[in-house]
Amino acid sequence: MLGNKQVNWLVIVFFAVIIAVVFRQIHTSMMEQGIATGGPYDNAAAYPRAIAIIIGMLVMFQAAVNWFKRRPVSPETDLTLEQAYRPMALLGIFALYLGLLGVLGYHLTTTPMIIALLLVCGARPSLHIVVTALLIAFALAYFFEAHLKVVLPGGIYGLNIPW
């Protein structure tokens, strides 16, 4: 169960982390490279630092608003776990797909990914969805590889179809 209020705080934390990363990078990586001081020619840190400070002030203001505001900002965004299951599964499968894409290549991973997504979206397991998935995967591959000359990831086995 994730309410609107919690999500708002999560975003505040997200931006706070980003601001922290900016300052951390300025004091480590940019210092080491010697680009954290000097004039406009050499100082690459001044501008991101200024932006980070401005965001920081805005985020603090927003945090104060979150704190004092009793009314929910928009009440319909409260989310139950049941509702969240499908998008989470979707993103999980997609992330797994991207992870395997570089290793196994487009042709081995895409059809199973589409089948999995179809199942998550509520399609019943059948030959029909396998055929659909194969069609989608290979039709798109054909369009991009044969006509637009894009070489889709072949993975460690170098699986590419010479159309």
Binding site: V21, V22, S29, Q33, I35, Y41, A44, P48
Partner: peptide, 11 residues
């Protein structure tokens, strides 16, 4: 890559 200092930022 920063165009001016040629340093790398947040990479």
């Amino acid at each position: 890559t920063d165009e001016f200092s040629t340093g790398y930022r947040f990479t």
